[in-house]
Design a protein around this nucleic acid. Sequence first.
RNA 1: GCCGCUAUGGUGCAACGGUUAGCACGUAGCCCUUUCAAGGCUAAAAUACGGGUUCGAUUCCCGUUAGCGGUACCA
Length: 491
Amino acid sequence: MSDHSAKSQTGVRVRFAPSPTGYLHVGGARTALFNWLFARRERGTMILRIEDTDAERNKPELVTGIIDGLQWLGVDWDEGPFYQSQRTAFYQEAGKKCLANGSAFLCYCPAEKYVGGDHAVEGAETTQVRRISRCSCRDGKPSTPDVKPAIRFKVPVGGTTKFLDAVFGEREFSNDEIEDFVLVRSGKGEEEFGQAMYQLSAVVDDIDMRITHVIRGADHISNTPKQVLLYRALAAEIPIFAHLPLILGPDKSRLSKRHGATDVNMYRSEGFLPEAFRNFLALLGWSPGGDEEFLRTSQLLEKFTLQDVSRTNAVFDRPKLEWFNTQYLQKLPVEELLPEVEQQLNASKLWKEEWATGAGREWFARTVDLLRPRIRLLPDFSSWSRAFFSDDFVRDPAAKEKFWKEPAKIKELLGQTADALAAVTDWSHDPCDHATRGVAEAAGVKAGLLINAIRVAIVGQAVAPPLFDTMVVLGQERVVRRLREACAELG
RNA sequence: GCCGCUAUGGUGCAACGGUUAGCACGUAGCCCUUUCAAGGCUAAAAUACGGGUUCGAUUCCCGUUAGCGGUACCA
């Protein structure tokens, strides 16, 4: 999908491996972003792999949404997407290899036996814990013709398994805490075996794809010793792991739908700029050290290291995201903003072709530039500032209430202003300013009173950019016309 | 229950044995002002608790508590 692989100069290979059981959520996006930052920073290779080995829970149509989300974020990849559902035989082969070398065994236990796994049994006088750590099939059990076996890993008895984590450091787990996990599901119908389980498919693919750094959420930290055991059983080199702290909701529980939007595509449609969202996401669980400024992608790439990744879970703070968005809205070169605004206006049927080129384009750029300090989200361009792009707007009742307190007097003033402005020959800031203030002075009212009243008349809102700049952008004909319309509206 | 991870203002991060514990978001106030933002200035606000180690702990060790993760023929 890109030409990055051609530029790869190091052996660093990472992957983002979402499971299409839902949309691309914030946590997944952050994981993808960190993998991407690391790959690009190290001039390595980024791989996209779809982990869809659970036929029951998978929804293939969701892959599109995940890919859209990644593209919006600016995360691209060099290889893939690869689909695990298409590699079943490959994993089964690896499972059989483990069987052959004695690191796995056939398990004839009914699948239901383990549903729920180890857990505390409620209600008993003393808490009973059902353990499945060591399956009774591990030393062999005669095959029964009517029962199809699954393949389970034979976890060593005693001892420990350790691995290196670039974020959490050296980690060691006791083997006795690891259950004999399933590698390959039992077959249904004619098939000998079913699909591989996550632990096997992930490891087999990471080996096959020569992944050097496994960067993923910290929820996988206790899966890691199992995978290390598998690497050994398959006689493969163990990669470096980097577990990322989880993203929590404001109540510190794991971020979920009840906290609001968790789908990155929802942030896109809400009108966040991808660069702002990316900057915010990058700072969740990572910081460059000193000042946390607004960072363009190049600066992010320059500073990103796994060593600076935090070990503590981070709360997703929406107000800060919005702040980043307003910052980008203001500081990005206007040219970068124009396509986004154009798309927004297009979606709300306000777009006019004349703004695409030449003088129209210049006007469009000037208007966007004038508007942007007051915009929070992209859709504000077509709602809040509708009057700048269309004559079809409504004067906000609350604004009239606030600035048209004495209708008769306001009507008279607006009428005088319309006349004064109609007479202006050089339609620019200062002449508009002088003409308007002249009307206020002649009528003996404070300029502010008139200015506020005019604002409501020409843009229909209590809030807008500085009035005379607004007049310039709207143009003389429109301003005068709207002032007269307002007079009519006042009775 | 068991295993593991984590613990600095409300939030995100700094300080990686010695600082008046710093920055940013948010909050409050002031300035600017033509509305609202932006911007500038100021303020309130933190080392979870208890033990050690040390001349000295936010920092190292232990315990407690809390949150989170795992404990599936989910990923």
